[in-house]
Design a protein around this nucleic acid. Sequence first.
DNA 1: GTTCGATTGAG
DNA 2: TCAATCGAA
Length: 463
Amino acid sequence: MTELVWFRNDLRLADNAALTAACARSKPVKACFLVTPGQWQEHDWSSARVQFVLEHANVLARQLAKLGITLSFLYADTFAESLDKLEAFCKQHQIAGLHFNEEYGINERRRDKQAHDRLSALGIRVAKYRDQTVAPVGQILTQQNEPYSVFTPFSRRWRSWIEETQPTLYPAPSSMGPEVEAEQTDTLPAPFKDAPNPLVANGEDAAHQQLDNFLEERAKGYKDNRDFPAVDGTSQLSPYLANGVLSGRQCLIAARQSGISGDGIETWINEIAWRDFYVNILYHYPRVSVHRAFKPETEALVWNEPGEHFEAWKEGRTGIPIVDAAMRQLKTTGWMHNRLRMITAMFLTKNLFIDWRLGEAWFMQNLVDGFLASNNGGWQWSASTGTDAAPYFRVFNPVTQSERFDPTGEFIRQWVPELAKLDNKRIHEPSKGGVIPKGYPRPIVDLKESRKEAIARFQALKD
DNA sequence: GTTCGATTGAG
DNA sequence: TCAATCGAA
């Protein structure tokens, strides 16, 4: 009788609850990965992400093969069809027990429930593991046993849970049998083409090297440097985390074991907490995964028609240099610096007053690290429709942000070469006091007026 | 029940 | 200053 590990958003050998449990149970162990392009497209997966995931699945297949575990690729279009494939696979290989780590999007939960019901009916044990976050999802609750809707108290509770529990890593499995030949999936399925060049190196080993390198080189200065897009101040681990090549738990434990102390590392650990926080929000408030606002009253907002403004935003020709630089970075590399995600999201929702859902989808369609919980959480935060939202009257001024976080215009110059010759002052707002370089647009919206209008629309919600 | 601290700023 | 809101005390 065979145990089967179903890999999904957890493409790693080390610190993987489902894999460890399956290998501890009995031999032999098999593994599978379901290739579902239609579902990925429906979920706005980017080409960059699909490429990243499939390449990492191939790396995983080779690692597992060395341990005597075959990872089989099962092809189906949607989640619904994939369950037929999974069921057939289980019958064909006489699977006794299925193991997987939970995912928390609403379609994923529905799929997992159906998988559980169908396979249980065949007499197969179905074991699921709550492994996506450092503290198991649903563990961190207020004193009234309610989910937190504000980050700071959540993070305090989260930190004390870690102190009390001292989480440890699941060991990577040892050999389960003689080496087998690794199956490999071929290149990008049909809807996903023209992925940008990979931003980060392939494989679990590369992920750990990058984590170690971050801790050695940049963690201490993280708090001071992380907001400057021209500075290499962040960990850039998000593609690995979003797709489970690394776990948040591995990051946390590596940070603690590094012996580094101080504001830098603690600020970074807070980012791991943000990730857990938003996964919990997705879990406790399923409405956010069907494009509904966390704050229901904000559903009454009437957003502008997207039109030409939305096109200009997507393509990086809004006439606001920091916004355009950021949007071009996203489209070209599949990644955007976090400070810029806030600036561009705030600009779309508060200055252009375009529905946050459109921005959320565009980010997903382009990001290599697109992760429903964090992307939705971040967008709703920016749009003031979400948890712990910035008060609606607090609207970033993108020019001010640009002056503060890209003071020499280095980042703008990199992505908006039309403006490269402007001096450090003018580059943030070329329309002010001088001739705009040829080929660069005037601002498509008046920042001051649009800010006032947005605040008024939010104010009107309360009346 | 009420106060109080805190909240990835801007004008 | 502006100013909303949650959670803890």
